[in-house]
């Protein structure tokens, strides 16, 4: 299968493929939009997602040096009461961990099998020119176990790409996996972040995993993007009616929002449309 020429492999589309090859085919190859609900309580889901995006923005502003008092004022009147708690948790528990050169909301990519793997990081810290620390802020879900996190596509992809492309941040040619740590910090849980150091063995395993995954996609023809056998995945899939796999969207409680990008919910306007109008 030839992928669109401007296609990037990201954590969310890889997860889609691993969940269901047919979903990947519909979404990224046919570009089919299927406007069903993802979860049942759509309004609450939207509000949570937007609050998550606002929280990410607040941290970004903090890291850029905007006075905290201004950000406090914004957090205090946020329509979602959770946000002020998350903000206080952040201020209390995280800033002292953020020593080093900061790369905020930065994207890196690396080629693989003539394709491109891309990661967008909330924060990468370069400490002493040798240690690279990824921070990822999570506002949804419970604080997860290490083993669970180690198995996530996001963890594997973000650490792998940083090992391959992090030299552009440090100015060095090579980055060894041992230099990399990925930290997940869960805003509702004010403990220390969960820290996942990388190593050569995991790097090799990730490389093989992503190569196999991409090769598998490239080797498939249109008819071979099969629907998943695990119909539980269909509960939270937009295409469920197209596949005759159910009527109602799954409940919000059971939804795994881990790999959803916060940017998916940003109100991203296209101001280039200003050029398109005829007066």
């Amino acid at each position: 299968m030839k992928l669109p020429e401007d296609f990037d492999f990201t954590q969310s589309n890889l997860k889609d493929y691993l969940d269901c090859p047919y979903r990947f085919y519909l979404k990224y190859i046919l570009h089919t939009k299927w406007p069903a609900l993802l979860v049942d309580d759509a309004l609450v889901f939207e509000e949570r997602s937007k609050a998550g995006a606002r929280f990410h923005r607040l941290i970004q502003q903090y890291l850029l040096g905007i006075p905290q008092s201004r950000l406090d004022a914004i957090a205090e009147i946020d329509p979602n009461p959770d946000l002020i708690k998350w903000w206080e948790n952040f201020l209390e528990n995280v800033p002292h961990l953020l020593e080093g050169q900061r790369y905020v909301e930065t994207s890196l990519s690396t080629p693989m099998l003539n394709q491109r793997l891309v990661a967008k990081y909330d924060l990468v810290l370069v400490q002493d020119q040798s240690q690279l620390v990824i921070f990822d802020w999570k506002t949804s879900g419970k604080r997860q176990r290490k083993e669970w996190l180690l198995d996530r596509v996001q963890t594997r992809l973000y650490r792998y790409i940083l090992a391959r492309a992090g030299g552009s941040l440090t100015g060095t040619a090579e980055i060894s996996p041992q230099q990399i740590t990925m930290n997940y910090w869960f805003a509702p849980h004010p403990e220390a972040p969960i820290s996942l150091p990388y190593n050569q063995k995991a790097f090799q395993a990730d490389q093989t995993f992503f190569e196999n995954c991409i090769q598998e996609i490239l080797d498939r023809n249109e008819e071979n993007f099969f629907r998943t056998d695990d119909e539980r995945k269909c509960r939270y899939c937009l295409y469920r009616s197209h596949c005759d796999r159910g009527v109602n969207a799954g409940d919000l409680q059971g939804f795994d929002a881990f790999e959803l990008d916060a940017e998916d919910f940003e109100f991203d306007l296209d101001f280039d449309q200003i050029q398109e109008i005829e007066f």
């Binding site: 923005r57 502003q61 850029l64 905007i66 201004r70 994207s107 391959r164 492309a165 552009s168 306007l269």
Partner: peptide, 23 residues
């Protein structure tokens, strides 16, 4: 090793106003 950034005047203004809104 990563994407380049593309901006227009509108994109630049909007991104900066959004990011530095507290200022």
């Amino acid at each position: 090793p990563g994407p380049v950034n593309s901006l227009t005047l509108g994109g630049l203004a909007r991104r900066m106003v959004d990011l530095f809104w507290p200022l």
